[in-house]
Every structure is written in C-alpha cells, then in structure tokens.
Design a protein around this nucleic acid. Sequence first.
DNA 1: CTAGTTGCAAAGCATTTGCCTGTGG
DNA 2: CCACAGGCAAATGCTTTGCAACTAG
Lengths: 125, 125
Amino acid sequence: MPETLTAQRVAIEAALESAVGPLSPRAVLEAARREVPSLCLATVYRTLKKMVAAGSVSMVELAGQPPRYESSQIANPHRHHFLCDACDTVFDLHGCVEDLRQLLPRGFRMNSHDITLHGQCPNCR
Amino acid sequence: MPETLTAQRVAIEAALESAVGPLSPRAVLEAARREVPSLCLATVYRTLKKMVAAGSVSMVELAGQPPRYESSQIANPHRHHFLCDACDTVFDLHGCVEDLRQLLPRGFRMNSHDITLHGQCPNCR
DNA sequence: CTAGTTGCAAAGCATTTGCCTGTGG
DNA sequence: CCACAGGCAAATGCTTTGCAACTAG
C-alpha cells in the first residue's frame, strides 16, 4: 500500500488535526479546500476511508448524526462524547463509568458501550 | 388531523407492537405486508412520521445505525439500548446510571444522555 | 361527498464507484 | 515510467415528495 503523499492528503490531515472536534466529510472538504481548492468530496471520502483503514483516523458515529472523523492521536479510545445542542460540535470525553453492567438484563453479554451526553458547551452557554 | 384508520395504518401499528425491539422502516414494510401486500415503503415512511409526530411511536437512533421505530407504549423514556452484534436486534434497557456527571468537563452543561451497550443477546450466545 | 391516504415514479441527499487523466517518487 | 491518486460524473441506497386515483367516514 503505497500511501502516496499528495497535497490533498496533507490538507485533509491538517484539517483534522487543527479541528476542535471530529469533522463531517463536508466540513473536512471546506477546511481542506483552503489549501487545495480543486479538492472534491469523492477524494475526501476515499482518503478518510483509507486513513481509517490505516488507523490514523477514527470514525465517530453518534446517534442520529452523520459520521464524523478525527485524528486518532486525538481520539478517545472509549466512545464517550459530548454533543452541543447549540453549535453541533462534538467533544471527546475522558474517564469512564463504573456501574454500566447494572443496566444489563440477565443473559446478555456486554462487549463494549458508548455514551453520548447532550447539552451546551462552554462557548454556547 | 383526521387520522384516518386505514388497513395499512393498522398493519403498521400491529407490526410495531408485535416486534421484539424497534424496527427499521424496511422491517416494518416486510412485517406489515403480510397483512396488506400492496403496502409500499413511501407509505411506511409517511405513516411512521405521523405516528412519531402524534407521539404514539418513538424513533430510536443508535450510533452508526439507521433509524428504527417502536411503539411508545413499549419505548424507554431513557435512551438506553442494547444492540446485539450478532443478530442486530435492539433491546430497550431499563434503569439508569448515577455517575455520568463525572464525565462532564468543567464549563459544560448536560441536558440529557444516551447509552448503548454492545454485545450478544441471550439468543445469540 | 371530500379531505386525507395510498401507490407509483421521480426527486433529493449523502456516499460510493468507474473511468480516464494527472503525478509522486 | 507507471502504479496509485484525483476529478468528474454517473450509480447507489435511503428517504421524501408530487401527483392522480382511491377510500374512510
């Protein structure tokens, strides 16, 4: 897998790294186009997919939201996120919760979990 | 809002009420077609939307999953769900978790939360 | 009767893919 | 050089909508 270093790939990486939270493909396009105006959405999708496969980027999917992407360096290994109702930005949360197993009915086995908190971020209060 | 009682509406309600968990529009179509073979997807979408607006049906959206629908009588007021990795069925969970607020960084305000556990349901173990 | 509902087909969106040109190494 | 990446446009899959025929009340 040759992983050619192109201007568009660099611009997409830069967009993800300078973002405050995970970005939608459209948001990546808009940010990266400031560097490479010819960039098209198809390339963003293809590149993000490759980066996810390579592990350098993580996909963040929240309920009722389109997928977003963030640099794995930043990403939370746990799927704990905060979604601002007002500005629609996603923030990674750290730390974990103890008593999730109490939610589990008899006979179920839990492998993983994800938690999303909703509310307002500091900027929107 | 006249809420006409048609065969298709009855079939859709029945499909939702007899389901083990929330259903996708396609699954509703397949189930309800056993009653009303002429039923089409557009009608399923339109009817579900009206039912949600009327409050008789709840939309269940899980991360990375297409929306599903369930009868509000069954629905969990909390958004706590279990998704079976194997059969892809969603189960409502009851009970709640105490220490979520510990996840919240300083300056954020939390209005609500949702939790999804992943693993295997009793049938798939 | 007549407003509201339905089926069908077409329109919208987001995402993916085919194809041919362009280019990094 | 030349395999891979990129741009464009067409294809795809899910959901919505316009429209004319139909039906519940």
